[in-house]
Nucleic acid binder design. Structure first.
Lengths: 214, 214
DNA sequence: TATCGGCAATTGTGATCACAAACGCAGATG
DNA sequence: CATCTGCGTTTGTGATCACAATTGCCGATA
């Protein structure tokens, strides 16, 4: 195999996948944005073969939609689908937070508070991409403690599908308030309050949905 | 594009994907079973290019695992991961059933009963593959009524990951009892009993987990 | 008999090419 | 001014090839 295993070398298609995945999940691409095999191939100076694998993989995860003729573009979600994805987030993330709670020590809460400060800065600067990235980092850091890799992978797929739409929503809303629900989450973590944690996580995840129903 | 759109022609890699996906989800492959690009290519009389796309896609969905050197094989799940996947099933399928309940009319219940009879036949014949397929068909038929395609797709991915393991489990257990929990589900559907439905679905989904903790 | 070393076969990766279908813009037509 | 018709360009698909790394088997050695 051409895949060098020494150190942490990654195959070309895997580098492409990770790079594009970040772009999509963190809202750097608008909904409906088209991508072509040769376009991406030229941008990354590779042939179309690894690009095809990366785009197909992203499409399989719902990060890209494929037109009937096979063209790739970021998905433009309907309101119904947004509601569904938000409900999935609520279901899974409440469970992940619950599983993380007994393992959440002070060091974790402090790390979360640091991330929370970064979120506040991003909000103040109205930097949508940084806001989305740090916000997801907050959630991921908490859920990593749940020791539930399959659940985390599933919810990350949901985040991925919502990426372009979240960018469009947050960019439109221009919210100015710091992350209120995150403070509730931190308080519940410190107090070991499981019911309170579940309510706080559910509220945080569902919050974005409310401003959709404008 | 080489993709003919007339009628319902599918690209070669898509045919491969669907075929292999069925094999895996319905337990026709054992855990840890290896697959090679050239092996599959020869079996389906195509080149390695479409095979690579199909296998990569399945790997992205967790239906196949990739070794450090890039080889493909069906996943051999740890007990922890099985517990996680069962918990995901419980979370999502309870929600899907709840959403399907208000739309579940008599015709649907009758279709479910027909499928249930087929399940009993498969159990009596100790046909693990048919049992798994018809059992999932029972669940899918119910959940289709929920009008929640993203949730259904997510839970199908979970089914996919558990396919080979379920085959190994059911093959070992040789259960003889007809689907008890399914009768409870049907009764709750007929009665419009949402709490009862949620309990029945959760029990049905978690049931397989218990015989794992032998 | 068990273990190690080495070589041949196997395997995944990425580049390149031909091909057919869809796209998109320009020009003709009403 | 709006709509349709062509035609060149763009795009995804699948086959093939060279390559490098892994695998696995066979024989040598202790």
């Amino acid at each position: 195999m051409a895949e060098k295993l020494q150190d942490s070398y990654l195959a070309a298609h895997d580098q492409l996948y990770r790079n594009l995945r970040m772009r999509i999940m963190y809202g750097e691409l608008r909904p409906g944005q088209a991508m072509t095999l040769r376009g991406v191939a030229e941008e990354f100076s590779v042939s179309v073969t690894p690009v095809r694998e990366a785009l197909k993989r992203l499409a399989a995860e719902g990060a890209l939609s494929i037109s009937v003729s096979g063209r790739f573009q970021t998905p433009a979600l309907t309101n119904d689908r947004i509601e569904e994805l938000a409900a999935l987030r609520a279901l899974i993330e409440v469970e992940l937070a619950t599983r993380a709670l007994p393992r959440a020590h002070m060091a974790l809460v402090e790390r979360l508070q640091t991330i929370n400060n970064a979120i506040s800065v991003a909000v103040a600067k109205a930097d949508a991409v940084t806001y989305i990235r740090t916000n997801l980092e907050f959630h991921r850091t908490l859920y990593l403690r749940a020791q539930a890799p399959a659940m985390l992978a599933t919810v990350e797929t949901v985040w991925l599908q919502m990426g372009p739409t979240m960018r469009a929503l947050y960019g439109r809303l221009q919210r100015k308030d710091p992350p209120m629900h995150h403070r509730l989450i931190l308080a519940a973590l410190k107090a070991g309050d499981e019911p309170g944690l579940r309510v706080a996580v559910r509220a945080d995840v569902t919050q974005g949905l409310r401003m959709l129903a404008r």
